[in-house]
Simulated assay, not measured.
Amino acid sequence: MPAEPGTVRPGGRTARVRAAVLRAAGDVLAEQGFDRLDLADIARRAEVGKTTVYRRWGSVTGLVADLLADMAEQSLPRTETGSVLGDLTANADLVRRTLADPRQGALFRAVIAAAACDARTARALRRFYEVRVAEWAPCVEQGVARGELPAGTDAAAVVRAVSAPLYYTLLTTGEAPDAAAADRAARAAFAAAAAGVYVTGDPAAEPGPSPA
């Protein structure tokens, strides 16, 4: 089966072309929104032939999907401070700084808006967050191993609980969350996790006897 446009990772000169095109696409998304994306315009901005762009990405949604994949790859790695609360605070601050960045914040608003009405963009956005949650989940798993959180804690759910109120602030107020909001989000997620809110199942339960 042939690969979906925008999913094959190139190297060499092709990698440089990809970087230029994705940079141009991100600029347009941040400046003008999803509905103004046009492959011919992106090719012009990136100083790349239109044929190359159409052949590689095929459509605007294919280009956005590849942009999100690249953003996930380029995102900063997790911070490990030695405590769950410290790690979650670092995660919250990274999300806050991303949303507060003039280019990145506008880009995320545009992609989130597009995902609400375009299935392929929605899938690409979900993949982006799957990658980012998987990057930070080990911080929670290490906290469980250290005894800071109860066994059976759903690490991915805790990580999502940190960023959820920050995105909600952005989407409902139009303003990026501040440092105090990021700190509250991290502390709330940690407190809930420590209280067992995110424990799935009962890891301590032993199978009972079979009925006679």
Rank of each mutant, 00 (worst) to 15 (best):
A122M: 13
A134E: 11
L125Y: 12
E141P: 02
R184Q: 14
R127H: 13
A157L: 14
L171M: 14
A122I: 09
G152P: 05
E130L: 12
Y129K: 12
R184N: 11
G196S: 07
Y168W: 14
C139Q: 12
A156V: 00
Y167M: 10
P150Q: 08
R132N: 09
E135S: 11
E175I: 06
A124K: 03
W136G: 00
C139A: 15
T172Q: 09
A180Y: 12
A156G: 12
C139K: 00
V159Y: 01
R160N: 15
A186S: 08
A161E: 01
A157S: 15
G196I: 02
P150N: 12
L166G: 10
V162E: 06
E130H: 14
R127S: 15
E141L: 11
A137S: 13
A188Y: 01
A151P: 03
F190I: 06
A145Q: 14
A151K: 13
A134K: 07
A182Y: 05
V131S: 06
S163F: 12
A145K: 11
A164E: 15
E141H: 04
A195R: 10
S163A: 13
A194Y: 01
G143C: 04
R127P: 06
V162I: 02
D183C: 03
E141Q: 14
E148Y: 05
G174M: 06
G174K: 06
V158Q: 07
V162Y: 03
R187Y: 11
T173H: 07
A157Q: 13
R132E: 14
A181H: 13
Y167D: 05
A157G: 15
G196L: 04
T172C: 09
T153G: 04
V140A: 04
W136Y: 12
P165C: 08
A186Q: 10
A193H: 01
A185K: 05
A189I: 02
V140C: 03
F190T: 10
A161S: 15
P177M: 05
A182E: 06
A122T: 10
S163C: 09
A156L: 02
R127Y: 06
A124M: 05
A164F: 13
A189H: 02
A179I: 07
A194I: 08
L125G: 03
A145S: 09
P138I: 08
A192D: 11
G174L: 06
T173Q: 12
L170W: 00
V144H: 03
L166A: 13
A161M: 03
E135L: 10
T169N: 04
G143S: 04
A194N: 02
A193S: 05
A191Q: 11
R127F: 09
F128S: 00
V158R: 00
A155M: 01
E130T: 13
T153S: 09
L149E: 01
A182V: 09
A137H: 01
T173K: 09
T172L: 08
A185I: 10
E141S: 13
E135H: 07
A155R: 00
R160A: 15
A157I: 09
A185D: 04
A164I: 00
L125E: 12
R132Q: 15
R160I: 13
G143P: 00
A145Y: 02
A185E: 01
A137C: 08
T153H: 07
V144Y: 00
A191M: 02
G152W: 03
E175N: 12
F190A: 10
P138A: 13
F128D: 08
A156I: 04
R187C: 05
L166T: 10
